[in-house]
Computed example of a mutant assay.
Amino acid sequence: MSRASGPLDTGTVTHRIDQGDFSVQLTYWTSDNAKQYTAASSKTVNVAAHIEDADSTHRVKITTFQVIQDDNAKRTVVTTDSGQFDVTPPYPYNTVVSLPAATAGATKLTLTIRLDLLVETAPKSNSYYRSTALDTLTLPLLTNGAAR
Rank of each mutant, 00 (worst) to 15 (best):
D70H: 06
Y129E: 10
R59D: 10
L142Y: 00
A106W: 01
D86K: 04
F85H: 06
Q19L: 14
S23N: 08
T38G: 07
T95C: 07
Q69M: 15
D71N: 07
P89M: 07
A106D: 02
A40S: 14
G105E: 11
G105W: 09
Q66M: 12
H50S: 12
P92E: 04
I68S: 10
D53G: 09
L26N: 02
N126D: 12
E52S: 13
T95D: 04
A102F: 07
D135K: 00
H50G: 10
A4Q: 13
Q84N: 15
Q66D: 11
Q36K: 15
L139H: 05
T80S: 15
Q25K: 14
K124E: 10
Y93W: 07
T64N: 12
S82D: 13
T30I: 01
S127D: 09
T57M: 12
T10I: 09
T30V: 08
R75C: 08
T136N: 06
T64F: 03
T79G: 01
Y129V: 14
R59K: 15
L137A: 05
E120C: 09
L8M: 06
N126S: 14
T88N: 01
A73Q: 15
D53E: 12
R75T: 14
R114S: 10
D53C: 05
H15W: 01
T44L: 12
T38F: 10
H15E: 11
T110N: 13
T107K: 14
A48E: 13
T136A: 09
L142M: 13
V13A: 04
W29Q: 07
N72H: 15
T76K: 08
L111D: 01
K43Q: 13
K35F: 01
M1R: 05
P140A: 02
E52I: 15
L111M: 12
P92L: 04
V13R: 00
V24Q: 04
V78G: 09
W29G: 10
I17T: 05
P7H: 03
I62F: 03
S31G: 06
Y93I: 00
L137P: 00
L134C: 01
L8I: 02
D135I: 03
A40N: 11
D21E: 14
T95F: 05
D86S: 11
R75N: 13
T12N: 03
T138V: 15
E120Y: 08
L111S: 01
D9S: 05
A133S: 14
I113K: 04
D71K: 03
R3N: 08
Y91L: 13
Y93L: 07
L139N: 01
H50P: 03
A34M: 02
L142N: 08
P92A: 06
G105V: 09
G11L: 09
A49R: 03
H58V: 06
K61I: 11
T63E: 02
A39Y: 08
R3F: 05
T30P: 10
E120T: 05
S31D: 10
L139D: 00
P90F: 04
S41D: 07
S127K: 12
V87L: 02
T14D: 00
D86W: 04
L142Q: 14
T138N: 03
T132A: 12
T30A: 08
